[in-house]
């Protein structure tokens, strides 16, 4: 259990985020956000409650909500499109999640662990999901249509009339240049720092991979120049 001072510090980090005042104007307590929220239909989660806790600076309950509740949000932003006060409960949850990571909270680590596989895929291929990762048992939320992916994946993919999509180990092809640009974006926006805090081993693997790709890209650039000189 955190001390009051620690909980206060976490809240201060949330409210000093540059987006905070834009996402939170006050609250009419009307419940439109919760009524439209898909996650509230299925989980013990209410965007109105999150907004109220932040607005009334209830640091204790904010800390509590960060243990589990905030991870139920699907980040669909329906709430932001509907709130009559133009708040963005989903945007506030995004800030809270980033702060949870920054403080190395266990809840963040637990929730994010299964996504390591996705992260690795993303960094190594530029795709977060590839056709060969889709196994019917893992996607019950896709409904009965999921059965259609069982079959000869290679043949099915070949049937797509777009050449760059006829892949199975990636969803589409990503060029080396695009990958390297993405590494820069992740670095500069703090994604890799967050990863280091959450999963050091994965971070090391990914760092090595990025270094390798960057060298590859440098080599490729040099080759181009040599070609031009000829």
């Amino acid at each position: 259990m955190a001390t009051y001072a620690e909980m206060q510090e976490i809240f201060d980090d949330i409210r000093s985020d540059f987006r905070y005042d834009h996402e939170l104007n006050g609250c009419l307590n009307c419940g439109i956000c919760t009524a439209t929220c898909p996650s509230a239909q299925f989980y013990d989660y209410s965007p109105r409650e999150i907004v109220q806790l932040l607005w009334t600076e209830n640091v204790d309950q904010i800390y509590d909500a960060m243990q589990e509740k905030i991870w139920a949000c699907a980040q669909c932003m329906t709430c932001a499109a509907r709130c009559p006060f133009k708040n963005s409960p989903g945007g506030l949850v995004a800030i809270m999640r980033e702060v949870a990571i920054k403080h190395g909270m266990d809840s963040a680590r637990d929730v994010l662990r299964p996504f390591g596989r996705v992260m690795l895929k993303l960094i190594t291929t530029g795709n977060q999901l590839s056709p060969d990762m889709i196994q019917p048992d893992h996607f019950p939320d896709w409904g009965p249509n999921i059965q259609k992916v069982e079959g000869d994946l290679k043949t099915l993919r070949k049937a797509i009339p777009v050449k760059t999509l006829q892949t199975t180990a990636t969803a589409w092809e990503v060029s080396l240049k695009t990958s390297v640009e993405m590494y820069t974006i992740w670095e500069m926006t703090g994604v890799l720092d967050a990863l280091e805090l959450m999963d050091e081993n994965l971070f090391d693997v990914i760092e090595d991979f990025i270094d390798e790709k960057r060298e590859e890209y440098e080599d490729w650039l040099e080759e181009q120049e040599e070609d031009d000189d000829d």
């Binding site: 009419l28 009307c30 009524a35």
Partner: peptide
């Protein structure tokens, strides 16, 4: 009922369905 309605739709029998959060009971309805 303390709730601002989010949307009005219709059910199969033609009746209207009103969707909101009962903010005192704290659940979507």
């Amino acid at each position: 009922v303390k709730a601002r309605i989010a949307e009005v739709t219709a059910s199969d029998d033609g009746r209207l369905l009103v969707k909101g959060e009962d903010t005192l009971v704290k659940r979507p309805i």
